[in-house]
Design a protein around this nucleic acid. Structure first.
Lengths: 165, 165
DNA sequence: CGCCAACCGTAACGCACGCTAAAGAACGTG
DNA sequence: CACGTTCTTTAGCGTGCGTTACGGTTGGCG
């Protein structure tokens, strides 16, 4: 998981995984099948607590608080010490499906806010969702190329000021 | 250039470039040297008009207008019809240097705004620069995975509302 | 101690890659 | 028409990839 997280599916060779894991290739193949299956296992491990964290953040009483929490915890996750910078899901081209899922949850939360009167319309909710998606994607990419936590949190803080109270 | 733009350096094989260009490998090697030199030529072509466009956008009278123009023209560039979606520079891990240059120009423009009193401090300028960097990076990534122009412009519009007038 | 089964590392396969040498075609010049 | 130059094509090199067959080692059990 660490290797895929750092360098992506195509950037990691099976030999490198074997070296980092301290085992030989046949053992790895006996345990996981092939590189694809190994990657899916790594993804499953990575995304294990992702949905609940997401739901926890998004369950805040107001959409503004929900987005604030989401952006803040994402910035912290993308720069967690002892872990690779960025996000395995955001950095992997083939995981479009998983990203769409997250986007759908954000959009749903904002549409709920529109239905509850916190936002003026569903259209506004979708636009803000697109904006938040963009910021999250950017934060992950910036983290991977070395942006530190402070800078990401700065970006997150300004992003939450984007729509009027 | 199109091939590298669409799929990145590692995602493009010399054989594919040859097929798309309608020439054989030795001709390509005679003309460009090797894959790296070809890529640098493609980058030079891509970035040819990039700095002037950037300076044109950033030369707006106020920093807010400068950022508005930059975000808007970037959103349009990332979704230009007949061209690959996204940005060659933003999508290529090895072009960190080029991205840093763009970031430096944005930060310089916002620091100027701080010096001129449009922003309250250099610290605020740097924070807004980090935010704008993040949004730009995210817009390029979102464009590459299929986000349409409308969505990117929505994100750009909300990003410009992030700091008070 | 002897046996069997499970495990592990070595070595190799087929393939695609970046790259290049040498054969062959096209073309202007005498 | 013959020739020399220039470009293109064919074919192949070495390397690293994902993957797997095989022989040696280890460890538990009678």
């Amino acid at each position: 998981m660490r290797a895929f997280w750092e360098r992506g599916y195509d950037g990691v060779s099976v030999a490198q995984v074997c070296a980092e894991a301290g085992i030989a290739a046949p053992s790895l193949y006996a345990a996981f099948g092939d590189k694809n299956a190994l990657f899916e296992k790594a993804c499953a491990l990575y995304t294990e607590h992702l949905d609940e964290d997401l739901e926890r953040d998004l369950s805040a009483p107001t959409a503004r608080q929900a987005v604030e929490r989401l952006l803040r915890s994402s910035a912290e996750h993308f720069t967690a010490p002892g872990q690779p910078p960025g996000c395995l899901v955001m950095g992997e081209p083939r995981l479009t499906e998983r990203r769409d899922k997250t986007r759908g949850m954000i959009r749903a939360r904002l549409r709920r806010a529109a239905a509850e009167g916190e936002l003026t319309s569903v259209a506004e909710a979708d636009q803000i969702a697109a904006f938040i998606d963009t910021v999250l994607t950017g934060m992950a990419a910036r983290a991977r190329e070395g942006a530190d936590r402070t800078r990401l949190l700065d970006a997150a803080r300004y992003a939450t000021r984007a729509w009027p109270a």
